[in-house]
């Protein structure tokens, strides 16, 4: 697996939709184009919705990793 340099990390496991996406979006706005954001999120609604919404705004999902009961997402700012 390729290694990515993570510019920032965000834990949205305490949040529910749509705040999960809102926080992800706000964090991505703070990054420069091409930088990677690491996001920890829950199974279910968050993993179904957040990647789709993020892609809809022109960012790239570079990694989805299933951890114990949650997910680790790497998003490259578009």
């Amino acid at each position: 697996m390729a290694e990515f340099e993570v510019a920032a990390t965000l834990d949205i496991t305490p949040d529910v939709c749509p705040i999960t996406f809102v926080k992800t979006k706000l964090k991505l706005e703070q990054l420069k184009e091409g930088e990677i954001l690491e996001v920890l999120l829950n199974d279910g609604e968050p993993i179904q919705n957040v990647p789709r919404s993020v892609k809809g705004e022109g960012h790239k999902i570079v990694l989805v990793e299933k951890l114990d009961g949650k997910y680790r997402l790497l998003i490259q700012r578009g």
Partner: peptide
């Protein structure tokens, strides 16, 4: 961009809009 937790929730429906954002 720095929003409080309360502001993130209060303005979430704005922030979601691609034309608005944070």
């Amino acid at each position: 961009l720095s929003f409080t937790e309360e502001q993130i929730i209060r303005y979430s429906r704005h922030i979601i809009l691609p034309e608005v954002g944070g």
